[in-house]
Amino acid sequence: MEVGAVSVTAAPPPSVMERGGAARRADPLFKALLTGLAALVLVLIAFFLVFLFTKARIAFAHQGFLSFIFTNDWNPSKEIYGSWPLVAGTLITSAVALVIGVPVAVASALFITELCPRALRQPLTILVELLAAVPSVVYGLWGFYVLAPNLKGAEQVIDDKLGFLPFFGGGPIAGPNYFIAGLVLAIMILPIVSAISREVIATVPADHKEAALALGATRWEMIRTAVLPYSRAGITGGAMLGLGRAIGETIAVAIVIGQSPAIGHSLFSQGSTLAAQIVAEFGEAGSDDLHSGALIACGLVLFILTLAINGAARYLVIRAERAGRSGTRAARAPRPAGGTA
């Protein structure tokens, strides 16, 4: 061995300083294997977009991209694919879910972190998390047979009383409808919004809370002056993650919305969402390339929508949690000194 010959001392036995070829190759191989798996994720996502797009293109070409989204007419039998009724349904049900779900989720998060006795904290947290363990299809079943029939009377009253408002007063209400779908969605997004709110609220430094209390703030005033302003961005992020869930939620909505691809007259009319309509028409689309292409295009729109919303949400949550850890906070736009109201 040449290295050994140059060396002044005796060449070390190769078994100590060098390993056999197989053993030496094991490390890079292992690393390559793991790196390959990681690369697989990126490849998958790329595949994802390419495949969905190639299959959806026929529908976009047939209808035009903007027209596909904004035409208010979904009529497969006439080969008209304007998905606006589905997009609108998605937005309506998600909005209902946010309006109902977020306040309840934030209230529970505030109660669990700031008000309830310590002994109750863990059990309450687990109970709220359990809501996430119930599968979508079971919420659908429950919504269809329990929620929809039992709320019908109340919905009718509200619809009649608020008939002067747009999107209310649609006459006799349908069993499955936008509102029921939104309500079921509210329940389904509750655990995630609550969990993220709890995490963010827990990062509010004790310093700030004590500062408020030492000024003579009541507990609620402490929440209002020290906790809420500090965690607002993070809670907003949590709500948006909930929105991402609500938009993509499929089976529960498919069961309780009625799957009728036209915009209803009122909040209590039947309708459909992007995801629900894919489920509804998938069987009949079969080998009709245009029809199934249109449904896949719906999936693509859904994908891009959730991508954008989740991206924004994650940004807000990460920023809020980082700020919480470092104890400082990017300065907000300052209010003028006189800004009392």
């Binding site: 996502i45 938009i247 993509g248 995801a275 991508l307 989740n310 994650r314």
Partner: peptide
Amino acid sequence: YFVDVMTGVPSIVFGLF
């Protein structure tokens, strides 16, 4: 980042894929 993105993808989109 993309693992995070995947957690937000609706399950129906995986089915379609």
